[in-house]
């Protein structure tokens, strides 16, 4: 009975993950698909050929999306690791307040934040630049990275570091040979979260990038708002692929409950 219900659960999860892709796949190769037809009445590869043509600016969008998301996730890990370490390992006065403040960007609408920040970015010449977009992507990614790493550090035995120091390791060697190897599965998970969050940012990129920085979501939205379902569907599939690939690559670092959490993020 238990095995049966487990099988059903897995089947449901797979269906839940795959089902939204079916209409997307059909749309990307449909020419005429009107109600009440269940399947398109005419088929065409126009969506795909347009997506891969020079006119679509897909290569530029892919390149900039990768540049922004990779750099933003690395920066988020770099900044979030010390913060997560302090939150995970130490008790201090006002810890709950600090945790709340770190979480705040996930609750406050990005639009409200970015309106204020935009002025500053213009003043410092960061508006309309790739660096500016990367920095603004830290707003939604840092809270997740910090909290994931805080959880990782909460289960980390710091005595390993004392042991390494006693054996002759200096501070950098302790970080390089003890801390990083001990926590790297958690770092990978945090990095994956950051990448996927950054990968799907639309509003922040639009506001700070000012249209100069073209990431995949921006390209996708421009086609979606123009009502071209074929190209939109093709681009959506291209948009989703890196997230799925990342999930598959990092899935062995995710366990149990976390794995399903990662899956819903991937969509």
């Amino acid at each position: 009975m238990k095995r049966f219900s487990k099988g059903v659960a897995i089947a449901l999860i797979i269906f839940g993950v795959l089902a939204p892709f079916i209409p997307l796949l059909i749309w990307s190769v449909a020419r005429r698909w009107y109600f009440p037809a269940i399947l398109p009445t005419e088929w065409s590869l126009r969506g795909w050929s347009y997506a891969f043509s020079n006119a679509s600016r897909l290569p530029q969008a892919l390149r900039q999306s990768f540049a922004v998301s990779t750099t933003a996730s690395l920066l988020a890990i770099l900044i979030g690791m010390p913060a997560g370490r302090v939150l995970g390992l130490y008790k201090f006065r006002g810890k709950t307040l600090v945790e709340f403040l770190i979480l705040a960007p996930t609750i406050v609408p990005a639009f409200a934040v970015v309106m204020g920040i935009h002025v500053l970015f213009i003043r410092y010449g960061l508006a309309d630049t790739l660096s500016g977009v990367i920095i603004v992507h830290l707003i939604p990614t840092l809270p997740y990275v910090t909290l994931v790493l805080a959880g990782v550090f909460a289960n980390y035995n710091v005595d390993y570091e004392s042991q390494a120091r006693s054996l002759g390791a200096n501070t950098w060697q302790v970080i390089r040979y003890v801390m990083l190897p001990a926590i790297y599965p958690g770092v990978i998970v945090a990095g994956m979260f950051a990448f996927i969050i950054s990968w799907s940012q639309y509003l922040l990129t639009l506001m700070i990038g000012g249209g100069r920085v073209l990431t995949l979501p921006l390209l996708l939205f421009s086609f979606a708002s123009s009502g071209d379902n074929n190209v939109t569907a093709a681009l959506s599939i291209i948009f989703i692929l890196p997230a799925i690939a990342l999930l598959v690559i990092t899935s062995r670092y995710l366990t149990g409950r976390n794995a399903s959490l990662g899956a819903t993020r991937g969509n």
């Binding site: 005595d159 120091r165 006693s166």
Partner: peptide, 16 residues
């Protein structure tokens, strides 16, 4: 600690 030459072996082994 790293250059003192007094090496400690912790109670719970802490083998990496």
């Amino acid at each position: 600690a790293e250059s003192r030459g007094a090496v400690m072996a912790f109670q719970n082994n802490l083998v990496f």
